[in-house]
Design a protein around this nucleic acid. Structure first.
Lengths: 329, 329
DNA sequence: CTGAAAGCGCTTACAG
DNA sequence: CTGAAAGCGCTTACAG
């Protein structure tokens, strides 16, 4: 059933049916009634594909992310989806695993589908977009990178100052008298590097020399946090605080401390990052850094929309994290 | 730039260009080379919209869920997306909040876009599909309900036996000598009702009479778990175990017990539901029920694919949860 | 092996 | 206020 069938049954032309469906003026009230009745009777669903053929847009946006099971990405993508839905766009979701090949594959099909724009969620895309293979694909499509800096013509960036974020945690601990602290670093994305830099700079600006030695590489997981702290204890390292790049790692750090008979925060203070549900589940509740995924999402949608609809001129922006005090410091 | 431009530049007809792009046989090797060179030179991206116009499919599937920030849904949707991606389908995601109006709105746009099929993730859709408003919309499109039972012509169901799931927890506790237990129920979906029924039946089959009195309604949150247990303690109720319908609630229950100076599991045993990361973050690690979201997702994709491509004839299926022992029992 | 033509289901000037 | 016609960018028989 298509617009021709409706037109025939109503005894009008397809132009008129089209006008009725799209609520255009210039239609006689009686004619409109008649057509609407037939539309209703058949529960008529116009084809957005045919419409897209003409309008050159399917009102669709692609969101590429690493893994939507990671709560921080889930929160970001959720807000992006809701906001775009309100604006009349559908959101296609792509879990790339942060891998080049998958990213390229997803981009290829999304570009064929002529998506109106693309949001890249995760600082890993910073690195990926530097490769020509990816960079060339997206240079003609509106793109926003949620947490990263993109140097492309048709794009914007929403940057979270992660270096500042971690420095907030360090300052907070210093203020409480901690000086012997370690940083648990996971992954090796741009964002992860900025975080550990924030740790190092903050410590060094308070007189600690060669703070780099207090950065420990570990897994982004509960187990990663447990292992790292167990090793510190086993090696008899001196420390009264553990700063973590992720809440999930911090929950592991707390577990290891408690299991070793240390009191949190009396013997060891711990901070996380993300202000996630994980931080609230942790007992005691984690002191953590709110890096505002909802705000990042809102800004991303606003910027991409302005790029797509070429309305207001916005510009890339930087978002400042905040400390959220829990019971682990 | 379209297929006509390519054809002109290559000095062939659009039919030939189409054949080359789609790797159809019957093209002279030299002609193919020539066309491919031009395609490459322009980095040509054919329009999936125009293609969809002809083929009547955009190779897109809609996934409606309540809220992708809930880890259980995130895991399900993640697997659904990955699986469909491998099969050449794009996934559009819709966070309906479980609300009728939003569900109807999303369905309308998805049907206009002529999606190939729909997956409904969450037992709330069970209730929603019973309403004519929703039921009528989806009766002509392939649909799979992930965790629920659908009575529609073009649809399949993947059911998780949640009643059995909770009974596993109860049996486990009974075996360890617990008899005085409460069940923390959240929400009021079909699945939530089945869970609390599982609790009641399991207890009653072990001689406890009127087990319904041990079911407590509370919030699906950490706070919900805390409040419920604090109230039990304040009211001097006798209990040695708490069975929860969700891991998140269980983490709250554990917190409340610990804060009241009770030992877990020595004084109070606690079980969760979902085998989520929350269960592993909880200290001690939660004993919980694995309701296999990945398996639910895989089955859903398999069933929907068979419905869409009208290949093999599968049938709706039931998945059995399993107990995962932690340190809280 | 190749091309001309029809058709997919709409929207949008244009003419009346 | 209404309709005939062109066009969106492809695929697919059909003829040669």
């Amino acid at each position: 059933m298509n617009i021709y069938d409706i037109a025939k049954e109503a005894g009008v032309s397809i132009s008129t049916v089209s006008r009725v469906m799209n609520n255009k003026g210039n239609v006689n009230a009686a004619t409109r009634k008649k057509v609407e009745a037939i539309l209703d009777k058949h529960d008529y669903t116009p084809s957005a594909i045919a419409r897209g053929m003409v309008s050159k847009t399917m009102k669709t946006v692609a969101v590429l992310t690493v893994d939507i099971r990671v709560p921080h990405y889930a929160r970001t993508v959720y807000t992006i989806e809701r906001e775009f839905s309100h604006r009349g766009y559908e959101v296609a979701i792509c879990n790339t695993g942060g891998e080049l090949e998958e990213t390229a594959k997803y981009l290829k099909t999304m570009l064929e589908k002529k998506v109106d724009g693309i949001v890249l969620v995760g600082s890993i895309f910073n690195t990926l977009c530097k490769k020509d293979e990816i960079g060339n694909m997206i240079k003609n499509t509106p793109v926003v990178l949620a947490n990263g800096k993109l140097e492309l013509p048709n794009s914007y960036s929403v940057l979270v100052d992660d270096r500042y974020g971690v420095s907030l945690a360090v300052e907070h601990l210093l203020k409480r008298g901690h000086l012997d602290m370690y940083y648990l670093k996971d992954m090796d994305t741009v964002s992860a590097r900025l975080k550990s830099e924030g740790f190092i700079k903050a410590l060094e600006s308070h007189g600690v020399s060669d703070a780099k030695q207090y950065v420990i590489d570990t897994d982004r997981s509960i187990g990663g946090g447990i292992e790292a702290v167990e090793k510190l204890i086993a090696e008899n390292k001196k420390f009264t605080a553990i700063v973590c790049g992720e809440d999930i790692t911090a929950t592991g750090a707390v577990k290891a401390a408690l299991r070793a008979g240390l009191r949190v925060p009396e013997d060891v203070a711990v901070t996380g990052y993300n202000n996630s549900e994980y931080a609230r589940i942790c007992e005691p509740r984690l002191t953590t850094i709110d890096n505002k995924p909802e705000m990042v999402a809102m800004m991303s949608v606003q910027l991409l929309t302005s790029l797509i609809e070429q309305t207001d001129v916005y510009s890339s922006c930087v978002i400042q994290p905040e400390l959220v005090e829990g019971k682990t410091t």
